[in-house]
């Protein structure tokens, strides 16, 4: 089970230029979502988008700035839910910038889906299925071997 999202993309612009688009609210809004971001560690901000009541999502993504390393790294929490302070999605978004070939390699990591990582269930589930598949495979082999030996 995949627990994190990672994307790596190359921009033929300097890290300083890319950084502007990650940290200036009016520029962030142009490619991501309307927001009241400020590049200050501990700062609480929100992204706002279309609410989807049918999906228990109030259209707000509640964030807190976790790390700011100018032109290199930016990280914030990413939480959301049906409203009334109820959080059902709790994750972390991290942007890492590296200068490369006269441009910037941007790495996006969306992870720390708390509920997923705390639960060993997922690996257990995967192992469980694998064991079941192996059991079936063994059974099939037994049958096949049985029939060939006849």
């Amino acid at each position: 089970m995949e627990k994190r999202i990672q994307h790596s993309i190359f921009y033929s612009h300097t890290p300083a230029e890319v950084w502007e688009y990650l940290t200036k609210p009016e520029l962030i809004a142009q490619w991501l979502m309307p927001n009241d971001f400020e590049p200050i560690v501990g700062y609480d901000f929100e992204f706002t988008t279309r609410p989807m009541p049918a999906f228990d999502f109030d259209g707000h993504i509640y964030c807190k700035v976790l790390e700011v390393v100018p032109f290199k790294k930016l990280s914030y929490s990413w939480k959301g839910g049906p409203g009334g302070g109820k959080i059902t999605m709790d994750s972390i978004v991290t942007f890492t910038l590296a200068e490369k070939d006269n441009g910037t390699e941007l790495l996006l990591d969306h992870s720390g889906f708390r509920i997923l990582e705390n639960a060993d269930i997922f690996s257990a589930m995967n192992t469980g299925w694998l064991q079941n598949i192996q059991k079936i495979a063994t059974l099939l082999n037994t049958v096949t071997n049985g029939s060939t030996s006849i």
């Binding site: 993309i9 921009y11 688009y21 991501l32």
Partner: peptide
């Protein structure tokens, strides 16, 4: 999770277009 995977893919491409147009 797959939804957000697609979401970021799209947004990061938009950012690339913006940077190029700049």
């Amino acid at each position: 999770i797959n939804y957000f995977d697609g979401f970021w893919n799209e947004k990061l491409k938009t950012l690339g277009t913006l940077l190029n147009n700049k």
